[in-house]
Simulated scan of single mutants.
Amino acid sequence: MHTRGRRLRFTAVLALTVLTLTGFSTGRHHSHSRHGSSGGGCSSSSQDHDTSTSSGGTTHGSANGSTHRSRPTYRSTPTATSSATARPLKDGTAVLKRCASLDDPYSTVEVRNPNGREALFTVKIAYKNSNGSTLADTTSQVSVPANGRATLRMAAAGTGILDRLDHCEVAPRATADR
């Protein structure tokens, strides 16, 4: 009977040790995790949940295919939109759809974005007289969705030019803000 009591105590201590080492605790329930995932069981935020041993740089894969480094290496997870890997933006195209007039002092321009992400483009319009001389220039910016297009209405550079305005010329390249 004395041996059975010792064996029972040993089993209880062993079970608590295993639970403690695997991140389970008795009585206290915390939902904090150092690695940002909600793994099995309750854990304390001060515990390290690496699946590797503390004796070197070995790595072990988990069931979901991710890899954890052994202690003490801690680093942030890289993202796909990291500025270090982002490609520079390509310029877009601008097409004049309608020139300003006395009836409507706004020019309409369609801007296309060839990039795989949203971008801000600068558009320039020159307002010309019948001789081809520039009366005024106007620039404006428009945000265009990834691989999309946007319509921009630009006010003429001043009401004094509208009575001498013959035509508008838009710069065909919409400059992407870098």
Results as ranks from 00 to 15, higher is better:
173 R>H: 04
69 R>E: 06
99 C>P: 00
25 S>E: 00
45 S>K: 07
21 L>S: 09
74 Y>M: 14
33 S>V: 02
104 D>L: 13
48 D>L: 10
109 V>H: 01
105 P>G: 09
17 T>E: 01
130 S>M: 11
120 L>W: 04
15 A>R: 05
122 T>V: 10
4 R>T: 14
158 G>V: 07
83 S>Y: 05
133 S>G: 14
25 S>F: 12
1 M>T: 09
148 G>V: 03
119 A>H: 01
178 R>L: 10
42 C>S: 09
167 H>T: 15
82 S>E: 14
134 T>H: 09
165 L>R: 00
136 A>N: 09
175 T>S: 05
123 V>E: 03
127 Y>F: 11
62 S>E: 11
125 I>A: 02
143 S>T: 15
175 T>N: 08
74 Y>L: 14
117 R>N: 05
25 S>K: 02
126 A>I: 01
25 S>C: 09
130 S>R: 09
97 K>N: 12
108 T>A: 15
129 N>E: 12
152 L>S: 03
53 T>M: 13
137 D>N: 15
153 R>W: 00
137 D>T: 06
151 T>P: 01
112 R>Y: 00
60 H>W: 04
25 S>H: 13
86 A>N: 11
85 T>I: 08
89 L>T: 04
99 C>K: 01
123 V>F: 03
6 R>C: 05
60 H>N: 12
129 N>F: 00
45 S>Q: 13
168 C>N: 04
34 R>E: 10
83 S>G: 05
5 G>D: 13
123 V>T: 05
75 R>N: 14
41 G>W: 12
76 S>H: 11
57 G>F: 13
72 P>E: 04
37 S>K: 07
82 S>P: 00
63 A>C: 10
49 H>I: 12
57 G>H: 15
44 S>N: 11
66 S>E: 14
153 R>A: 01
86 A>H: 10
26 T>L: 11
155 A>D: 13
38 S>R: 08
77 T>C: 06
156 A>C: 08
3 T>C: 10
25 S>R: 09
46 S>E: 15
160 G>L: 12
48 D>S: 12
